[in-house]
Nucleic acid binder design. Structure first.
Lengths: 125, 125
DNA sequence: TAGATATGATACATAATGTATCCTTTGCAG
DNA sequence: CTGCAAAGGATACATTATGTATCATATCTA
């Protein structure tokens, strides 16, 4: 997925014409067409205007991420990192809720400490 | 915060010289210097190489976000957003890791009991 | 203080961009 | 059908930005 496709996709989703979006961005329709056809690269200013306009991340526009969210909450990110939950197969199937309620960051931390403590006892005892 | 500052910042944090980073990126040192001084804008290819190299989001490089986190893979995102961690699922296919070691079913069970107990205490106390 | 190292500044050939304009397709009213 | 208009793709070309070599300017340090 490249930037052109993403722009066209987002524009279509809003039922905007190239003319309309171009005007909003302050560029010519021709330029926008070039972007959508991956013949030109918008400058950073226009890139950010696009991201703002569609409320997506630049990473998404560039096809670097599959989802448009800007970033995950850092706490969640940290949580995932700490748990070493990085294997896709696993992650496809699980997220951490207990009895329907998400684990809070504090709970996650305590969880980790808990597991470590238990293991430590197993090892030493 | 503009891209130049971010690049210089990240490069300094790794104690890399412009020469070293430029080589890694496959560009001239002069070009990198221009980027850091905000005299030129790297093309998308270089932009993404930079983000990959430093493991940050392009949004961060562009100064669009304050934190460097990249958007997680959608699978991870889903994992975080929505998962019900039932004991049955845990027993069947749960494989959280802590410190690189998989959680055993017993550990998973204790974990759930642990979370429930804590929540109970919060609710009642 | 000379030499090495790192980085900023500059010039200029080269490459990319922005826009006007033309072309093609599609939908639809008559 | 036919003609028209809207939308978007293609092209040409003047303009602008970029990449790099090279020079200049610190900053260490032996």
């Amino acid at each position: 997925m490249n930037i052109g496709n993403r722009i066209a996709e987002l524009r279509d989703a809003r039922a905007l014409t190239q003319e309309q979006l171009a005007t909003t961005l302050g560029i010519s329709r021709a330029a926008l067409s070039h972007y959508e056809k991956n013949r030109r690269q918008p400058d950073f200013d226009t890139l950010i205007k696009l991201a703002d306009e569609f409320n997506v991340s630049v990473d998404y526009l560039l096809g670097r991420t599959k989802r448009p969210e800007i970033t995950l909450d850092p706490v969640v990110r940290q949580f995932v990192d700490d748990l070493e939950l990085s294997e896709q197969e696993i992650l496809e199937r699980f997220s951490l809720k207990v009895d329907g309620t998400k684990l809070s960051p504090e709970e996650a931390k305590r969880f980790i400490a808990f597991v470590r403590a238990e293991r430590s006892m197993e090892t030493n005892g």
